[in-house]
């Protein structure tokens, strides 16, 4: 029984098959069930009928659902761009010759450790009590109301999301920057290349794979945003900050909407798959280029 031989040792089946079966029962089966329910009018209990694509039509025409998709995309795009720009800047700062480098690195990574829900509660207090107090004292009208009760509620949520997500993205960029050889910079400096040009011509291409990792991970994470919204606005005011995840949770367990939200979940799955495939294509192309 050689490891490279043709015959497979039965022990290997024992190592995989039981957990694969469990995985099928508790992960794949619910997923398939969800797809199945999305074609029925099941309420989560009682009788049901097949209704064809009715739920999908509903999903695409219900303004609450389309509204939540628009909001989720807006939020995910804004968060992805801001988080990546800011974390890259932060990583470059942390990678330069500074004092207390390790301490600063640990401080900036700290938010990653803390639960999103509690961070949401803490910032909820800041937006509802601290900022308005500050705004009133200094007569700044823009700051004297709770941002979470306005049209701009999503910015409040964005701030919290950035606050927490910066940590992870910065860490990845930092890992990328540390792979860049200093001599390349030095050579560039000798050739009189400016800072901005240096960044786009040298740094960025070298850390591109790390950029891709961050993009893949952040977009997916932001599309699923849930905890911070439940902690801060519950999806309000109105439906302004209701992400798809929040909508599925809030509506999915209501009788009339169980099947509809199952359809919504399937659509969400397709969206995630499509985005991931696009991202992987881009990643592959870039790697081809680099080689």
């Amino acid at each position: 029984m050689k490891i490279t031989g043709k015959k497979i040792n039965p022990a290997f089946y024992l190592m995989t098959i039981p957990i694969a079966i469990l995985f099928f029962i508790f992960h794949t089966l619910p997923f398939l069930k969800g797809v199945f329910y999305s074609f029925t009018d099941w309420q989560g209990y009682g009788n049901w009928n097949f209704v064809g694509l009715k739920n999908y039509l509903y999903v695409f025409t219900d303004p609450d659902v389309t509204g939540s998709y628009i909001f989720t995309f807006k939020f995910a795009i804004a968060a992805t761009i801001l988080v990546n720009v800011l974390s890259l800047l932060l990583a470059m700062g942390l990678n330069s010759k500074i004092k207390f480098q390790n301490t600063l690195k640990s401080i900036y990574f700290l938010p990653y450790m803390l639960g999103t829900l509690i961070i949401g509660f803490v910032f909820n207090f800041i937006f509802a009590n601290l900022v308005p107090q500050f705004g009133k004292t200094f007569g700044i009208s823009a700051l004297s109301t709770n941002i979470l009760g306005t049209d701009h509620a999503w910015i409040g949520i964005l701030i919290v999301t950035i606050w927490q997500s910066l940590a992870f993205n910065t860490l990845i960029y930092l890992a990328g920057l540390q792979t860049v050889d200093h001599e390349i910079y030095e050579a560039a400096e000798m050739d009189g290349v400016g800072t901005i040009k240096k960044f786009f011509k040298i740094t960025f291409p070298l850390i591109a794979p790390f950029f891709t990792i961050n993009m893949v991970l952040s977009v997916k994470g932001f599309l699923m945003a849930f905890d911070q919204i439940m902690a801060m606005t519950g999806g309000g005011p109105g439906n302004l900050t209701t992400t798809i995840s929040v909508l599925i949770y809030k509506r999915g367990f209501q009788g009339g909407q169980f099947a509809v939200q199952s359809a919504n979940a399937v659509v969400l799955f397709l969206v995630v798959v499509i985005i991931s495939i696009i991202q992987l294509r881009v990643l592959e192309k870039r790697e081809e280029k680099l080689n």
Binding site: D151, G236, P237, G238, N239, L240, Q254, G256
Partner: peptide, 20 residues
């Protein structure tokens, strides 16, 4: 009203529009 009718968020939206 039926259970899935989320009037509160509609009213909240109505109020927000008025504010704006």
């Amino acid at each position: 009203y039926p259970a899935g009718f989320d009037l509160a968020s509609l009213l909240s939206n109505l109020s927000l529009n008025a504010e704006n």
